[in-house]
């Protein structure tokens, strides 16, 4: 599903703050798309447009695959089953008595399945996020650890097998290990039924390592977009819009000042590889 958005503007109330200004963006199928920007730059508001939770104030075109979100007859329920949305701190939306019921919630809303089918899909979803189905299915979601809660919440979104997965700061509040696990989960999902991933993040290092494309938001507008290496390479004054270069970006700059020029896409692996290559050439 390709996502096309043209000249989207969103303002709170009639005379309220404009959260998103004249934003145009196309996200192709298969992309691992990163959206970065400081707090209040309109990232979260923008992604909520993509499954119709927020309606644009004015917009020329907003389509997700075959769904036209500007059409009044748009079938939001069907759309939302195709587009999974994981909010920030998704564990705060858990409510059911057992993990099984909570994960099955979305499934029951979207389609009427037999008991066996439901069980099969819930089991799959729980196993996809790396939890033990038999052990966990009858536990109360409130008895789990923080990391497990988040996994269960994500399973609750994945259970309908969405083609597009949108995540708002999925790694916030997790320790480095949990973060790594989550990102590798996203990668394995990207290789299976999830075709497109859109991830809002603060962390440049994560974005550079994992995203195929990235858009920088600043005050409700797109400041810059493209492949991560292009965006970060070229950009001076990232700090002025409240962002930082990835660590490799700073290293590259420091080395350039010393007269060493390294061609790299700024992922750690590639950077180290090229650095070592350069060192070998030099010696």
């Amino acid at each position: 599903m390709q996502i096309v958005c043209k000249n989207l503007t969103f303002a709170y109330g009639k005379r309220g703050v404009t959260a998103v200004k004249n934003l145009s963006l196309t996200i192709d199928e298969g992309e691992f798309f990163g959206i970065i920007g400081e707090t209040g730059s309109g990232k979260s508001t923008f992604i909520q447009h993509l499954n119709g939770l927020v309606k644009p104030t004015t917009c020329d075109e907003l389509t997700v695959g075959e769904f036209n979100l500007l059409d009044k007859k748009c079938d939001y329920k069907k759309l939302r089953s195709k587009i999974g949305m994981v909010f920030q701190y998704p564990e705060y939306q858990l409510f059911a008595e057992t993990v099984f019921e909570d994960v099955a919630f979305g499934l029951k809303n979207f389609a009427s399945l037999t008991k066996e089918e439901t069980e099969k899909m819930v089991k799959e979803a729980i196993e996809v996020v790396g939890l033990d189905y038999e052990k966990i299915k009858n536990k109360s979601p409130f008895d789990l650890s923080g990391g497990q809660k988040r996994r269960v919440a994500i399973a609750g979104v994945l259970v309908t097998k969405p083609e597009v997965l949108i995540l708002d700061e999925p790694a916030s509040g997790l320790d480095p290990e949990g973060k790594e696990q989550l990102l590798s989960l996203l990668h394995s999902l990207h290789k299976s039924f999830v075709k497109t991933i859109i991830m809002v993040s603060h962390d440049m290092n994560t974005v550079v390592e994992h995203c195929t494309k990235v858009a920088l938001f600043n005050k409700g507008e797109i400041y810059c977009s493209g492949r991560p290496s292009e965006v970060f390479f070229k950009l001076e004054g990232l700090e002025e819009i409240g962002l930082e270069q990835p660590l490799t970006g700073y290293l590259k700059k420091e080395l350039e000042l010393k007269g060493v020029n390294i061609e790299s896409d700024l992922t750690v692996d590639d950077f180290v590889y090229n650095l070592v290559k350069k060192l070998k050439q030099g010696s």
Binding site: Q48, N51, R80, F110
Partner: peptide, 27 residues
């Protein structure tokens, strides 16, 4: 935020009779 999150999971607060709507508030 919670309303939006549950809506994204297909929750429906606008249709159905009174009991169904009251039940929809649980999540």
């Amino acid at each position: 935020r919670i309303i939006k999150a549950q809506k994204a999971r297909g929750a429906d607060f606008e249709s159905g009779n009174l009991i169904k709507r009251a039940k929809a508030m649980i999540p």
